[in-house]
Design a protein around this nucleic acid. Sequence first.
DNA 1: CCGGATCCCCAGGGATACTG
DNA 2: CAGTATCCCTGGGGATCCGG
Lengths: 230, 230
Amino acid sequence: MFNHHLDFSVYHARVRSYDQYCSIARGLDIIGDRWTLLIVRELLLQGPCRFTDLKNGLPGVATNMLSSRLKELEQTGLITRYDAPPPVATVLYELTRDGADLEPVLKQIGLWGLRRMTDDRADDAFQASWLAYAPAWFTADANPDGPPATIQLIAGGQEAVIALEGGSVRTWVGHVDHPDLVIDGSPRAVLGLVTGMIDLKAAKALGSTIRGKHQLLQRLHPIPATPEVE
Amino acid sequence: MFNHHLDFSVYHARVRSYDQYCSIARGLDIIGDRWTLLIVRELLLQGPCRFTDLKNGLPGVATNMLSSRLKELEQTGLITRYDAPPPVATVLYELTRDGADLEPVLKQIGLWGLRRMTDDRADDAFQASWLAYAPAWFTADANPDGPPATIQLIAGGQEAVIALEGGSVRTWVGHVDHPDLVIDGSPRAVLGLVTGMIDLKAAKALGSTIRGKHQLLQRLHPIPATPEVE
DNA sequence: CCGGATCCCCAGGGATACTG
DNA sequence: CAGTATCCCTGGGGATCCGG
């Protein structure tokens, strides 16, 4: 092998900057590129991921785009890349503290974006983890002292669970036995119902099936549309 | 993928979409393009603006870019465009409610971006309004019952005022007579000092001049780096 | 199969000139 | 002042290829 005295081991991306001494502009210098925040979303929702996990969680992304973004994210200190021990024995990507600190940013974008979810687009991809984060991030238990309860969500074949307990709204992907309430319908209907964008009547009109303790929906209280930072 | 409404009477941009039924992705479909959020920043900080006001507030933007973004923003309902009456007698751009609701998004991005403000870049643009929003958005009065006070900030020739009164931290661009405290220095030093990123000693080491009631700085309490949405 | 790298092509973005 | 028009370049999308 020839040694060209060139160091190819350190990736150096050309970073396009707004060149403004403003924390918003500097933030956008780092996270403003296409796909970047969605990669952070996946790592926040899924935890450490393999390349393929990210690819599957980001329908529509090109592999070269994902690859180059991961390098940039590593270079800017938002993720770390490490070799997982057996039995995984592959490369894992994980958020650093700086990267995980973007959660409030994603929450606010997602909260703002909720109002644009009112139409179904046939070719939109949909995943259970996206169904799960909405009630966890955008609702609170209106009756924190109420009894523990679970709600099974089924939307477009994707399943997620909402658990009300101790005043918190927790969610995860998957199935629960003996839920107190089952909501089955289109992504729009199920998401709309649990985030308070539509009511029970409208959800049923959209073809949803709701079985169990309907009044549990009253406990899912949407958080204000424009909360203060503090 | 692309929306191909062919309508010749109304401007219709081809909106690139992530095609994911996820409120974060849908939000980014609208606000994720380059310059979009910085235009919203200017309209939030300055109020209704003329084209030239925006151009001046967005150093580095190309006029065609600004023009096309304004059309997109109008089309997506984030701004309105209207003819101002005399004596202005020109077109003004103003945020709609939907557009103004992006303030929490900008706050979180700016709060996250603060940590990347630690280096001065010689060719970065700087404006007084960017100096002003930081203490207003990212600090609180640690002594809400304390006496009213004003702080004059001077950074890179740009002037802004901080007013502590009634528990609130208000700021504006410009000059105040008889401030209780005057901070004069580089953008990095002044911003770092008022947002709690650096201390008085470090600010002085960076060449800052601080005159007046130094203890007023104790009242500027940085808000937590990762506050909950609620 | 996993984890990318490479190539091609087009659209989005940037700089500047120009016009009502 | 308020944008258009033009040119050019780079970033991003899509498919394919390749070593482990």
